[in-house]
Simulated scan of single mutants.
Amino acid sequence: MRAHILVAEDDRKQADLIRRYLEREGYEATVVHDGRVALDHARRRAPDLLLLDLMLPHLDGLGVCRALRPEDDIPIIMLTARAAEDDVLLGLAAGADDYLTKPYRPRELVARVTAALRRAARSSRAEPERYRVGELLVDLARHEVRAAGRPVNTTPAEFTILACLAASPGRAFTRELLLERLGGFDRDVTGRTIDMHVLNLRRKVEPVPTRPRYLLTVFGVGYKLAEPPEGATDSAS
């Protein structure tokens, strides 16, 4: 079955170009030009992925993302003409999985779509949730971490951060999103607190903490867990 992509883009010429490139690659594409229509369409027929323009009439991309994200975990790629760091952070904080600034090359957009769908498929297959990247194993079901076969002791906050990243390998998480996950541990946590937890995790799991292989910094955004090679995410014991 072909993956269904919902394209929410108010520039009709640009939307048609995106549709043609997606269909050329074998995807099914539905195009809408209004934020409220996009939200309604996504709720009636959940797409496999949403391409979401930031500037939409009636309800902007951030509003669509904030409304849809608590209801569905479909991959969302934000399209924006705003390249400023704050705008990118807003999109990611609202729940977007990736972003692409205009002007972009259609082939790059299709490549981002393919990568996001691959990550989503990999995540949905993992039951119980075990993620392996090189010699790092994160077992969400057993609440265990192993590095090169040795057990790693983590604090509750450290495991929460690592579990969040491991659930969506390759996805960039802002410090704000990670702070939300830590809300139950300490009301006074800050972005600096996230940095310190990641630093401590690197000391525990990285072969060379100063040159991380697993817990990667996404400059200007936050952190992500490196993506495992194809077939490396497993549920075997």
Score class of each variant (00 low, 15 high):
M1T: 10
R2M: 09
L6M: 01
V7F: 05
E9A: 04
D10M: 02
R12K: 13
R12S: 07
Q14T: 06
A15N: 06
E25D: 14
E25F: 03
G26W: 01
T30K: 10
V32T: 08
V37H: 13
V37D: 12
H41L: 10
A42M: 04
A42S: 14
R43F: 04
R45Y: 06
A46S: 14
A46R: 08
P47V: 11
D48P: 09
L50M: 08
L50V: 15
L51D: 04
L51A: 07
L52K: 14
L54S: 10
L59R: 14
G61T: 12
L62W: 07
G63N: 05
C65K: 02
A67G: 02
A67Q: 11
L68E: 11
R69M: 09
P70K: 10
D72M: 10
I74S: 01
A81L: 02
A81D: 00
R82I: 03
A84G: 03
A84Q: 15
A84S: 12
E85M: 08
E85L: 13
D86V: 13
D86H: 09
V88K: 15
L89E: 06
G91W: 08
L92E: 00
G95D: 02
D97T: 04
D98H: 11
D98R: 12
T101L: 00
Y104M: 01
R105D: 15
R107V: 14
L109K: 01
R112S: 10
R118P: 04
R119F: 02
A121C: 03
R122G: 08
S123I: 07
S124G: 05
R125A: 11
E129M: 09
R130E: 03
R130C: 14
R130P: 03
Y131R: 09
R132S: 07
V133D: 03
E135M: 07
L137D: 03
H143P: 01
E144A: 14
V145H: 12
V145P: 00
V145F: 04
G149Q: 10
G149S: 10
N153K: 11
T155S: 15
F159P: 07
L162V: 01
C164A: 15
A166G: 12
S168H: 13
A172W: 08
A172Q: 03
F173P: 04
F173C: 12
T174V: 11
T174M: 06
R175N: 06
R175F: 01
L177C: 13
L178P: 04
R181T: 12
L182C: 04
G183K: 05
D186A: 05
D186T: 05
D188Y: 09
T190S: 14
T190Q: 11
G191Y: 00
I194R: 01
V198I: 15
V198T: 02
L199F: 08
N200A: 15
R202H: 14
R203L: 13
V205W: 03
P209Q: 06
T210Y: 02
R211M: 05
R213H: 04
Y214F: 12
L215M: 07
V218K: 14
V218N: 11
F219E: 13
G220P: 11
G222V: 10
Y223Q: 07
L225W: 04
A226C: 06
E227G: 07
E230N: 05
T233Y: 01
S235I: 10
A236V: 08
